[in-house]
Design a protein around this nucleic acid. Structure first.
Lengths: 215, 215
DNA sequence: ACAAAAGTGTTGAGTGTACACCCATGG
DNA sequence: CCATGGGTGTACACTCAACACTTTTGT
């Protein structure tokens, strides 16, 4: 039987949001070695007596102040090479509504949103993690309601469509989009018909289930 | 920053095969505590300087003598409750051709195949792992060539169909199945037309790519 | 007035599904 | 001669993609 205690486990979270029509990821600026001055995904070690999901929630809450959002385990990556004790990294991904986020105020680290289409080179080979998360997210769009936590509780179908377009990176046909969404009945219409700042009254919808739903 | 060295990591493998028209899983019989005398999935601790994939391959090779088969990471589960130091478990799943397997000969442990439809209650909550693996496998059938490593190198379309049926747990229409498989061109026909033990000559096929392919 | 977003149907192509019979061989 | 598995085509239902104009409001 193998030697014990060789590894601890780290958890990292890819936090996505949609900002001005593009899909973005939350990154933190590292002050300490290794990879000082590089951008990286938020993450850290699993605490004793904590589940993996709890650790991911803790990280998400710390960075954004949010906890009731879509958050799912993604993949477990090997320990990145480096001077520290090697620990496998369990990656999660989350979707948040940017208007509900309160970014952590820090002295030395500056969290910031970066469009996924224009990422810098990240610490710990985190670019691969983001790429993997993006692929998974795109795949899940087709058959689940994951986007529920990217949008406010009530939203127009156009807003929803913009979220889909940002994630898929291409334009969608409006009429086909509406037909499909309504036929899946992921959403219910609500009575309210006027939204601040909108050009004209519009029907608002909400997700019929806000829990993660994987058809 | 959290305390270090609280956890190591374990790896476990769900090894599937098709035996007389039903999908089966390889289990080992535990001699030692915890869960002595219970059946469990093969697994063990990650060794220092080993990648997760390597650990899974090592386990698979140890139990079956095989290494060139489909093997994919599945999910990372929390440490099971118990007296030992809690370690998260990175689960993998593999597909093997039973005729190529050489089960490990052991004195105290007896590895054995169990149909997934009729599993005993497993140690370490491994039943949930098997259920998860089965769902993933079924999903992957639709859009990938994963079954390539369940079958011998050359096979008839009927054999292939039997493998699909065992995994999905339902009968498929022969003509539709053939049309679909051929249209995906996952397989190429080979010249050989006679197979030992078969009732009549038949066209044999082989997978055009034997590498994992995720369309 | 005009820019910006909301809303609304039809058609054609392609895909998926249901369904039944003949053939070659081994026993 | 019969049991076993190999091999083959068509018709219908459904899903998906392409496509343009009118309405309402804020500025």
């Amino acid at each position: 039987m193998p030697a014990l205690g060789a590894s601890a486990v780290a958890v990292t979270v890819v936090i996505f949001t949609v900002r001005d029509a593009s899909l973005s990821v939350l990154l933190i600026h590292r002050a300490a070695e290794p990879f000082a001055e590089a951008w990286a995904l938020p993450g850290g070690l699993l605490l004793p007596d904590e589940t993996l999901d709890q650790a991911a929630e803790r990280k998400l809450l710390g960075e954004t102040g949010l906890s009731d959002v879509f958050l799912e385990q993604l993949y477990t990556f090997d320990a990145p090479p480096g001077p520290t004790t090697p620990t496998p990294v369990v990656a999660y991904f989350a979707l948040v509504d940017e208007s509900r986020v309160h970014l952590e105020e820090r002295l030395s680290w500056r969290p910031a949103w970066f469009p996924v289409s224009d990422l810098p080179s990240l610490a710990f080979e985190n670019n691969a993690v983001v790429t993997y998360a993006l692929r998974r997210l795109q795949a899940k769009l087709a058959y689940s309601n994951v986007v529920y936590s990217l949008l406010p509780e009530r939203f127009t179908l156009t807003q929803l469509q913009h979220a889909y377009e940002a994630i898929l990176g291409r334009q969608l046909d409006k009429r086909n989009f509406r037909k499909r969404i309504l036929s899946l009945d992921l959403v219910d219409p609500t009575d309210q018909v006027r939204q601040a700042g909108a050009h004209r009254p519009a029907r608002l919808y909400r997700f019929s289930k806000r829990e993660p739903l994987t058809l």
